Amino acid sequence: MADKTLKEIATKMAKLDIALLTTHTSRGQLSSRPMSNNGDVEYDGNSYYFTFEESRTVKDITENQHVNLGLSGPKGLYISIVGNAHLIRQRATMQQHWVPDLEKWFKDGLDTPGVVLVRVEAKRIKYWQGEDEGELTVQ
């Protein structure tokens, strides 16, 4: 088991778009849903996903910011990211992560009522690929 650096893990994540975002519900259950980062894959320990203000995702994060991201990729790559989710409503920050493909869900772009950006700040990353596995604590 040879632990990798954040940069090495980021390289493996570069083409991965879909993650399963798991939150804690108000009833103490876990709830997962697929989220697309829409090609925003310059990974630095933060992941970004757009959703709606009225979504279950936002409700769960408001009550408990501790989340998990699960990703899988080619050649048996699996990544689990434990972190804290933050809700971002500042248009300037959202603009930095906006791509035109998002308009299939948010028809008026950033002017769509209730659009919110979720930032997941990694605290611990675990990865597996064949017999190679390891863990990284993100500062």
Rank of each mutant, 00 (worst) to 15 (best):
residue 45 G to Y: 05
residue 43 Y to L: 03
residue 44 D to N: 15
residue 125 I to C: 03
residue 82 V to A: 10
residue 28 G to F: 04
residue 35 M to Q: 09
residue 32 S to D: 09
residue 104 K to A: 08
residue 129 Q to S: 11
residue 27 R to W: 01
residue 36 S to C: 12
residue 75 K to I: 13
residue 129 Q to E: 11
residue 119 R to P: 02
residue 16 L to T: 07
residue 78 Y to P: 01
residue 75 K to S: 15
residue 46 N to C: 12
residue 27 R to N: 11
residue 21 L to P: 04
residue 109 G to F: 10
residue 101 D to C: 05
residue 55 S to K: 05
residue 62 T to E: 10
residue 1 M to R: 08
residue 138 V to R: 02
residue 108 D to Y: 03
residue 139 Q to A: 14
residue 56 R to L: 12
residue 103 E to A: 10
residue 87 L to I: 15
residue 95 Q to V: 03
residue 11 T to W: 02
residue 17 D to N: 15
residue 74 P to Y: 00
residue 105 W to P: 11
residue 105 W to Q: 10
residue 121 E to R: 15
residue 137 T to G: 00
residue 54 E to R: 15
residue 122 A to M: 05
residue 90 Q to D: 14
residue 62 T to A: 10
residue 36 S to G: 12
residue 34 P to T: 05
residue 24 H to P: 06
residue 63 E to A: 11
residue 49 Y to W: 13
residue 1 M to F: 08
residue 98 W to L: 11
residue 2 A to Y: 03
residue 98 W to S: 09
residue 57 T to I: 06
residue 44 D to C: 10
residue 40 D to C: 09
residue 100 P to M: 00
residue 68 N to W: 02
residue 71 L to T: 01
residue 105 W to L: 11
residue 9 I to C: 09
residue 21 L to I: 02
residue 2 A to H: 02
residue 65 Q to V: 03
residue 56 R to K: 12
residue 49 Y to V: 13
residue 104 K to C: 05
residue 66 H to I: 04
residue 7 K to A: 14
residue 108 D to W: 04
residue 62 T to V: 07
residue 53 E to F: 12
residue 112 T to F: 01
residue 101 D to F: 05
residue 1 M to P: 09
residue 72 S to G: 09
residue 76 G to E: 11
residue 5 T to H: 06
residue 87 L to A: 04
residue 67 V to G: 01
residue 109 G to T: 09
residue 5 T to C: 07
residue 108 D to F: 07
residue 75 K to C: 05
residue 68 N to D: 13
residue 115 V to M: 03
residue 127 Y to A: 10
residue 27 R to D: 13
residue 134 G to K: 10
residue 5 T to N: 07
residue 59 K to A: 12
residue 116 V to I: 13
residue 18 I to N: 06
residue 107 K to L: 13
residue 31 S to I: 02
residue 111 D to E: 14
residue 122 A to H: 07
residue 19 A to M: 04
residue 97 H to M: 11
residue 21 L to W: 04
residue 59 K to C: 06
residue 11 T to Q: 15
residue 90 Q to F: 03
residue 1 M to S: 14
residue 91 R to L: 11
residue 107 K to T: 13
residue 45 G to E: 01
residue 122 A to S: 15
residue 89 R to V: 13
residue 93 T to H: 02
residue 82 V to F: 00
residue 32 S to V: 07
residue 22 T to K: 09
residue 67 V to A: 04
residue 16 L to K: 03
residue 132 D to N: 13
residue 8 E to C: 04
residue 106 F to M: 13
residue 128 W to H: 12
residue 54 E to F: 15
residue 48 Y to Q: 07
residue 81 I to Y: 02
residue 6 L to P: 00
residue 107 K to R: 12
residue 106 F to L: 10
residue 118 V to A: 10
residue 137 T to F: 11
residue 56 R to Q: 15
residue 30 L to K: 04
residue 91 R to C: 08
residue 120 V to C: 03
residue 3 D to F: 03
residue 1 M to K: 08
residue 24 H to C: 10
residue 116 V to T: 13
residue 25 T to R: 13
residue 48 Y to G: 06
